[in-house]
Design a protein around this nucleic acid. Structure first.
Lengths: 153, 153
DNA sequence: TCCAATTCGGACTGATTCCGTCCGAATTGA
DNA sequence: TCAATTCGGACGGAATCAGTCCGAATTGGA
């Protein structure tokens, strides 16, 4: 039950891309240099992230990447699912047939556990990660970072 | 982010063992026959489960297995951790050094997510699984399943 | 006391998946 | 046309996982 390394790297990459938001486009090579990740790895990541709509890519000279939608509308769950596919701790959550359902009393419980995990991931947006670290535990706290949404050219 | 098959099987095995609680001891072969799991696999599982104290093994003729403590005191989290080790979605949760901490804003958030997952697993005991199935809340995404294939062969 | 039956426990092998790298094709602006 | 950049697939190495097998330990009965 480990997050794959690629999914972890994708979160770091998206976080770095969010920092460049508003400053035009950024290349995959730049993101790699800033994060310390290997360039080919970042290229593979942005390929999937673009396919999921989380990034927008512009080809050609002076091309590059930018966020596909406002940072506040991108959650960690979105990023993880873009890399790993639908979050599913077990096969039965995916409605995939299982050979041992007959003796399994857990089947009704796995969706609940799965939702707890997904909810925790979906509760963190790129906007929160970009700003100063604020633990999103108490909802009475004032809005952490009133970020002005950038225009998507 | 998938639970390993062995951890999943361990939950099924423990669940079956709980059904035998009070009826003396049960052998690994019996558990395998009742659950449909391969016998060597069950043997491997009970080995780890016994080491974690979740099961108690008695060797020799007429030996067998029994729960290491009351079913109400064994949670799914205990079982998963007995097989997979400490629940840790990322390396930093385990306090394992990570090469990309410098550019990672997620580090303070992972423990929160990890606790959400572990809490969900720790909220289900063997006693609950043994009894009739009761859903706490059924808000599982019905998964619209945008499946193209309409052909029913 | 010894033997045999039954069990647990650990070591080994094959397979699958994952990670990282590389290269060529396609696209755009100068 | 040339240069810069993204996109897609193919390849090899590594790690982990699943499954199988065999040996060690223990108990009950003769």
């Amino acid at each position: 039950m480990r997050l794959s390394n690629l999914a972890d790297y994708a979160v770091i990459t998206m976080c770095q891309a969010a920092l460049h938001c508003g400053n035009g486009r950024v290349s995959a090579a730049e993101l790699a240099a800033e994060t310390g990740l290997p360039v080919p790895t970042v290229q593979k990541l942005v390929s999937k992230l673009t396919g999921a709509g989380l990034l927008r890519s512009v080809r050609g000279a002076h091309g590059g990447l930018q966020l596909g939608r406002p940072a506040a509308a991108i959650t960690v769950a979105d990023i993880v699912e873009a890399i790993e596919g639908r979050i599913a701790l077990t096969a039965c959550v995916d409605h995939t047939p299982c050979d041992f359902e007959a003796a399994c009393n857990m089947k009704p419980h796995w969706p609940i556990i799965n939702n707890a995990l997904r909810g925790a991931l979906a509760g963190i947006t790129l906007a929160q990660l970009r700003g100063p670290v604020v633990l999103a535990r108490n909802e009475d706290a004032p809005a952490p970072t009133p970020i002005i949404e950038e225009t998507l050219s």
